[in-house]
C-alpha cells in the first residue's frame, strides 16, 4: 500500500512538473505575433482606381476610434493629409504598417501632414487591434458602414470587400499629390512617402 502511495506521489509530481513545463512553454513559445491571421499570398492589386495626382480628393466623413467623426475637408487650407488605407485588422503587413508610422510622428509633423488610418473593419475590431499597437497618435477611421463606401469612392475596394493597401497624399488645397496603390502583400517604403511629403 505504501509502495502504491509513493508511486502516486511521484506520479503526481511528474504530472505537476509536466503541467508546469507545458504552461510555461505556452508562455515562452507564443509567437511574437500570436493573434495575427495569415491570409497567405494574395492577388497584389484587385481594383483599379481612376484617381490620380492632380485630382480633387473626394470628401468623406467617417466615425473614428476616439468617438467623433473625421471629415477630410476639415483639413482644407490647414494641413496636408495622408490617407493610409489598410486591408484588414489582424493580418500580417497591416498589423505593422501603422506601428511603423506611429514612431515616425516627427516626420509627418515636419511636413505639416495629418495621417489618417482607414480600414473597413468596425470600431470594436479596430479598438482591439490598435490597442496591441500601443497608443497611436493619429486618428483611425472605420469605413465599415455603408461597407467600404470611402474605399469604393477612392476606387480601391477589392472584390472580397476589403480595401487595397493604399496611400493618398493630399495637399492643403485638397488636391491629390501622390497615389500608391501598393501590392497588398508588402509594406510601402517609408522613405517613398516622406519623399512625396517633402515635395509639398
Amino acid at each position: 500500500m505504501r509502495k502504491i502511495h509513493s508511486v502516486v506521489v511521484v506520479m503526481s509530481f511528474i504530472g505537476l512538473w509536466q503541467l508546469l513545463a507545458l504552461s510555461l512553454s505556452w508562455g515562452a513559445s507564443v509567437p511574437a505575433d500570436s493573434s495575427i491571421y495569415d491570409p497567405g499570398k494574395l492577388k497584389a492589386i484587385d481594383s483599379s482606381t481612376k484617381l490620380k495626382a492632380g485630382d480633387i480628393a473626394p470628401d468623406f466623413s467617417l466615425p473614428t476610434l476616439s468617438g467623433g467623426p473625421i471629415t477630410l475637408s476639415q483639413y482644407l487650407n490647414k494641413k496636408n493629409v495622408v490617407l493610409s488605407f489598410v486591408p484588414a485588422a489582424w493580418t500580417p503587413v497591416c498589423s505593422q504598417q501603422w506601428p511603423g508610422y506611429n514612431i515616425a510622428k516627427d516626420l509627418f509633423d515636419k511636413y505639416d501632414a495629418q495621417l489618417i488610418g482607414i480600414s473597413v473593419d468596425n470600431i470594436p475590431t479596430l479598438h482591439a487591434w490598435t490597442k496591441e499597437m500601443g497608443d497611436l497618435w493619429f486618428p483611425v477611421a472605420s469605413d465599415f458602414w455603408p461597407h467600404g463606401a470611402v474605399a469604393k469612392k477612392y476606387g480601391i475596394l477589392r472584390s472580397n470587400g476589403v480595401s487595397e493597401r493604399a496611400l493618398f497624399v493630399i495637399d492643403k488645397k485638397g488636391v491629390i499629390r501622390y497615389v500608391d496603390v501598393h501590392d497588398i502583400n508588402s509594406m510601402p517604403k517609408l522613405e517613398n512617402l516622406i519623399k512625396e511629403l517633402k515635395k509639398l
Binding site: A32, Q96, Q97, P99, G100, I103, G134
Partner: peptide, 10 residues
C-alpha cells in the same frame, strides 16, 4: 527586428 513591429518597439 523590424521598425514596423510594435513588439520590437516596446
Amino acid at each position: 527586428f523590424s521598425m514596423y513591429c510594435p513588439i520590437c518597439q516596446r
